[in-house]
Design a protein around this nucleic acid. Structure first.
Length: 427
RNA sequence: GGAGAGAUGUCCGAGUGGUUGAAGGAGCACGCCUGGAAAGCGUGUGUACAGCAAUGUACCGAGGGUUCGAAUCCCUCUCUCUCCGCCA
């Protein structure tokens, strides 16, 4: 949610921001509605003041034994006028509010303007492994080694799902466990385990609704939504709160499966783990003082980086251009790992600063040093998304002899296993 | 699924038609007291919107209604809790 006062006082700045985000909006209509709301408000408030004053006189005059029927009739008339004005006020305000719900967050000044092609590679780590004829794509080697079973997945659920078997299933579990342990031990995040089904307003709070409603799975009779990321439930943990000054910064993380309809991506990447309707992810969330949020964003990226480095997976970091930013984000870094068999980069983490956009929607507030209630900034990042990490491991740790070595840091979580091999099927 | 209870300020909690933005308490802030602290005492302590301001308006789960006037009465909805049933 954008601050209507900001739209009012800096309309050109807002207009530029919305343009940069490639959003078509009739900002003039919004400004017109806003002016109208305030106009009506002025009139109706004056009438209410008059009405309140008259009502207060009644008990006094009654005590004095005066005839109050004329006054009552007059106030009844006034009350009717107020009701009509209130109605009109509500209609205009509802119209305005609905339009505001659809406005995305504005990009931060440090964000490059443009579309996907204008994303900037900010830095990279590690040496991408070269392509080689013996390298097999992850879905192939994964099935050969008995880690993945896509045929069964489509039997159960159709396309866009995966079954992990044997060491594959254990690898998933190991990664979840490792990520959570790492984030807690090295960065002090508090682990939470939250519902995967949430209410409509919860989805609204973090900005998935209304714009992305079509991408969400919804349960029909109850109007509950399957979360597309743990961000939704973890960030909304604080919805409506008034946080005391000393509570910030707040660091939370959680594992959850993530459900995405991926509407409109038919035909793209239907094979393998890269784009699936259900996947696992460990998400980290921060609620911080506004003036610290950009430093917090950098350190948030550092968490995802430290995980990738510990897994020894070469990656690069993109600063997303304005048009590639999600609805709620003001700035976002994507972390991509190199998949040598496919010779391309895979997004495994997305770290965003939402500034006060989500706070506003959730009505989350915090007492600043001046004891004033302000909207704190919220951030989140994947640390990390699982299936693509599995892809990256199957790719990067593949050997010429057709096995896949186990990354050093994961060995303790896999009973000391050194290698996934065809013989080791089923563990 | 059946039966019942409830939703008030940061928190607890009073309040059943008229200066109630809302008693009381806790917490917090400041002051007094103290060698220092605790206790004690005193004072203060909501948010949002409109307005340069004075000020005004709204808000006691949400939305409607009755009334000159609603936290208080009526209706609808949401959520929470208890008991019964069912169940991992």
């Amino acid at each position: 949610m954008l601050d209507i006062k900001r739209i009012r006082t800096e309309p050109e700045l807002v207009r530029r921001g919305l343009d940069a985000k490639k959003t078509q909006v009739d900002l003039d209509e919004i400004l017109r509605l806003d002016a109208r709301v305030r106009e009506i408000l002025g009139i109706v408030e004056a009438k209410k003041a008059e009405s309140n004053k008259g009502s207060k006189e009644i008990p006094q005059r009654m005590k004095a034994g005066e005839d109050i029927s004329a006054l009552k009739a007059q106030l009844a008339e006034l009350s009717k006028e107020i009701k009509e004005l209130d109605q009109e006020h509500k209609e205009v305000e509802t119209d305005l509010a609905e339009r505001l719900r659809w406005l995305p967050n504005l990009p931060h000044e440090s964000v490059p303007i443009g579309g996907e092609a204008d994303n900037v590679v900010t830095r990279s780590w590690g040496e991408p492994k070269p392509a080689a004829p013996w390298r097999k794509p992850h879905f192939e080697i994964g099935e050969t080694l008995g880690l993945l079973d896509f045929a069964s997945a489509s039997k159960l659920s159709g396309s866009g799902f995966a079954v992990f078997t044997g060491w594959g299933a254990r690898l998933e579990r190991a990664l979840i466990q490792y990520f959570l342990d790492h984030n807690r031990e090295k960065f002090g995040f508090l682990e939470v385990s939250t519902p995967y089904l949430v209410k409509r307003e919860t989805m609204y709070g973090t900005g998935q609704i209304p714009k992305l409603e079509e991408d969400m799975y919804r349960t029909e009779p109850d109007d509950l939504f399957l979360i597309p990321t743990a961000e939704v439930s973890i960030t909304n943990l604080f919805a409506g709160d008034q946080l005391a000054h000393e509570t910030l910064p707040l660091y939370r993380m959680g594992y959850s499966p993530c459900f995405r309809r991926e509407a409109g991506t038919y035909g793209k990447e239907t094979r393998g783990l890269v784009r699936v309707h259900q996947f696992d992810k460990v998400e980290v969330v921060k609620v911080v003082a506004p003036e610290t949020s950009y430093d917090e964003l950098e350190s948030l990226v550092g968490i995802a980086e430290s995980l990738l480095q510990s897994l020894e997976l070469p990656y690069r970091i993109l600063t997303l251009a304005s048009g590639d930013l999600s609805f709620a984000a003001a700035k976002c870094y994507d972390l991509e790992v190199w998949a040598p068999s496919e010779e391309r980069w895979l997004e495994v983490s997305s770290c965003s600063n939402f500034e006060d956009f989500q706070s506003r929607r959730m009505n989350l507030r915090w007492r600043n040093e001046d004891n004033k209630l302000v909207h704190p900034h919220t951030l989140n990042g994947s640390a990390l998304a699982l299936p693509r990490i599995v892809v990256a491991i199957l790719d990067n740790y593949q050997t010429e002899s057709g096995t896949v070595r186990v990354p050093e840091v994961l060995k303790p979580y896999l009973g000391g296993l050194e290698e996934f091999t065809p013989e080791g099927k089923g563990a």
